[in-house]
């Protein structure tokens, strides 16, 4: 066979819904075996549609889906055996006890009941739900329901786990423990595809990513590669004493957004030291400092903006000829002269 085995391969996948909505306009994508892959994009981009097609819940219009070398069209059962899905919407019977939900799901996969209960115990324990195994699903909290769906997706030990916004509405503490759990699953060799609107989540978990917008893939690369494209970073400094005006600041990009709030943008070679030298020289004391925006978020917004501009007819500037730094900042024209490899 040519090339490495992909956990998932999409070829020119298209979907037009009955109402005429073109949700996917021909996306192609490869996810390597063992990868932790982020599928990102704004609301309505087509993420869930793509996931629905891969997991046999949505009929495709055209294109090919291959999972571990098996064609979804020709060998649907083989594909379904190695796939685990955590859908975006709750899709369990709210009146069924959660232990039963897992055991029945295992049953549909042909796993004998006794073994199914052992697995249910294992995963419900790991996700801290075992005590609730006799409770109907509707009595769980939102975060517990999400964890229930993760346990259910794992009960047949899939090789590819697809998580469609698994942490939506989950509190920070549990979200972090879910990250740890999912990381552990990935370390055991399970390929993971994750969609999320929490970009710090994607940044900390995923190695590769694709960004999809209006049914098209507008970015597909490794997380590291993408992040190194970001040559600048913005910070917000809280000043101890409010200022009306800034002393002259040649060579630094600084802006007083409020009397006590100083925005700073530095490029990576430059670093923050010159800024602090300047502040010390002028006896400006800083109380605290924070990152203005999550890095991936900055990129994400830039990419979407570029995509939107490309779609808009009659644009004079070719997006690729514009410096990346400029693309990265939403709605801020007066950015410093930052160079990127856009």
């Amino acid at each position: 066979m040519a090339g490495p085995l992909h956990a998932l391969s999409l070829k020119n996948l298209k979907k037009t819904y009955a109402g005429g909505v073109e949700a996917l306009k021909g996306i192609s994508l490869d996810v390597a075996e063992g990868d932790f892959f982020a599928l990102l994009g704004p609301n309505g981009a087509g993420k869930s549609t793509a996931i629905g097609i891969i997991s046999s819940l949505v009929n495709k219009t055209s294109g090919d889906v291959t999972v571990f070398g098996r064609s979804l069209e020709r060998e649907p059962e083989a594909v379904k055996r190695c796939l685990g899905l955590v859908p975006q919407e709750f899709n369990f019977n709210p009146f069924e006890p959660i232990g039963e939900i897992l055991v029945n799901q295992a049953g549909y996969h042909g796993i004998p009941r006794r073994e199914a209960w052992q697995r249910a115990e294992q995963y419900l324990n790991q996700l801290e739900l075992w005590d609730k195994r006799r409770q109907p699903a509707r009595r769980l909290s939102g975060g517990m329901k999400r964890r229930l769906m993760i346990a259910r997706a794992l009960v047949h030990r899939p090789r590819l786990l697809i998580l469609d916004e698994p942490t939506a509405g989950v509190d920070i503490e549990i979200r972090r423990s879910m990250w740890e759990f999912i990381r552990g699953i990935n370390r055991e060799g399970v390929t993971i595809i994750l969609t999320t609107h929490y970009l710090e989540e994607a940044e900390s978990l995923c190695r590769n990513l694709a960004i999809i917008n209006q049914g098209e893939i507008i970015e597909n690369s490794s997380m590291r590669e993408l992040l190194t494209r970001l040559h600048s970073e913005s910070f917000v400094l809280n000043l101890k004493r409010p200022l009306d005006q800034l002393p002259p600041h040649e060579g630094l990009w600084l802006k007083l957004s409020e009397p006590g709030l100083l925005e700073v943008c530095v490029n990576q070679e430059q670093g923050l030291n010159p800024v602090f030298d300047y502040l010390n020289r002028n006896h400006i004391e800083v109380a605290s400092l924070r990152n203005k925006q999550n890095r991936l978020e900055q990129l994400f917004i830039g990419l979407l903006q570029r995509d939107r501009e490309e779609m808009a007819p009659g644009r004079a500037i070719s997006p690729s000829s514009r410096p990346m730094g400029q693309l990265l900042q939403e709605g801020e024209g007066e950015q410093p002269r930052l160079q990127g490899d856009g």
Binding site: K80, P87, N93, Q105, H109
Partner: peptide, 18 residues
């Protein structure tokens, strides 16, 4: 109909059960 309405029919559709 209930399985359809509450979407838990999807549990069967994603499984390899023919």
């Amino acid at each position: 109909y209930q399985a359809k309405f509450q979407h838990h029919i999807e549990e069967l559709l994603v499984s390899p059960a023919p």
